[in-house]
């Protein structure tokens, strides 16, 4: 039973110590601690929100970048297509040109050959004529070395040329 009866002295000291502690801590401990905690919590909240919005912005930026990238890729492909088209066009043109030039050159060469041939033939012909004249002259000279022969020839001519 002794244990269950509060001793007035201890009640007195406990009241004083506890109430003084409540006063002291409220003023010098809990006030700054709770205030700082509140401020910190708010700043953490704000920081989290800022991080969230930054993340959203990053996401938007990333999406923009992706769009840009897609566009760039398309442009590159377009450029490549154009370039290859242009290249093939140039190639085609060059081929056609080369063909034309070749043809012309061939034609020129043919014409040259023909001309050379004609001139060569003409020369041959004139040389053959000269040679035949020379041969004929030599043969005639040989045949008409004697008078008898000359006379026979004249006769022949004369026979041929009937004076009628």
């Amino acid at each position: 039973m002794e244990l269950l009866i509060p001793n007035p002295g201890l009640v007195f000291w406990t009241s004083i110590a506890f109430l003084l502690l409540v006063f002291l801590l409220s003023k010098f401990a809990w006030k700054p601690i709770l205030q700082t905690l509140k401020i910190r919590e708010e700043s953490i909240d704000e920081a989290l929100k800022a991080a969230e919005s930054a993340r959203e912005e990053m996401g938007e930026l990333k999406a923009d970048n992706e769009k840009l990238l897609v566009k760039a890729r398309e442009e590159r492909e377009q450029l490549l297509r154009d370039a290859s088209k242009a290249a093939s066009m140039i190639k085609e043109g060059a081929k056609a040109d080369a063909e034309v030039i070749t043809k012309r050159m061939m034609e020129d060469a043919k014409a040259g050959i023909e001309a050379e041939k004609q001139s060569a033939l003409a020369e041959v012909r004139s040389q053959v004529a000269n040679l035949s004249v020379e041969i004929a002259e030599k043969i005639i000279r040989k045949n008409l070395e004697n008078d008898k022969a000359q006379k026979a020839l004249v006769d022949e001519f004369l026979n041929d040329k009937s004076f009628n």
């Binding site: 502690l21 002291l24 010098f28 401990a29 700054p32 601690i33 700082t36 905690l37 910190r40």
Partner: peptide, 18 residues
């Protein structure tokens, strides 16, 4: 003990801020 602990902690809160 309690007043020392919590008042010194409060000092830290004041000094170190958030």
């Amino acid at each position: 003990l309690i007043s020392w602990v919590f008042i010194s902690i409060a000092g830290k809160y004041k000094k170190r801020g958030t």
